[in-house]
């Protein structure tokens, strides 16, 4: 079953949108708002597009309100599970 974890998400964020100076993405960032990690809405759009391709999942409207990695991962993994069940 497909699943996205924090290290996979941070790796994709780095690849799609770079890394803000002074931010440790390998630290405890699960509940840190994306904006504090240096990622704006475009960075999230770019990363979400990449996840949709890599994981063959549609995330339209699903991750929009997810402001932290925790909320974002929950939303993505719910979508992956729902897709698997369908």
């Amino acid at each position: 079953m497909k699943h996205l974890d924090l290290s996979e998400l941070t790796a994709l964020l780095r690849e799609c949108a770079g890394q803000e100076e002074g931010v440790d993405l390998d630290g405890d960032v699960l509940d840190t708002p994306f904006t504090d990690l240096g990622y704006d809405s475009l960075a999230m759009l770019q990363t979400t597009g990449r996840i949709e391709r890599d994981y063959e999942v549609t995330l339209d409207g699903i991750v929009d309100g997810a402001g932290t990695p925790h909320a974002y991962l929950d939303a993505v993994n719910r979508a992956l599970a729902a897709q698997e069940a369908a």
């Binding site: 799609c16 949108a17 770079g18 890394q19 803000e20 100076e21």
Partner: peptide, 8 residues
């Protein structure tokens, strides 16, 4: 250019 700016 910073790592954040390179992809954009």
């Amino acid at each position: 250019v910073s790592s954040r700016l390179l992809p954009q």
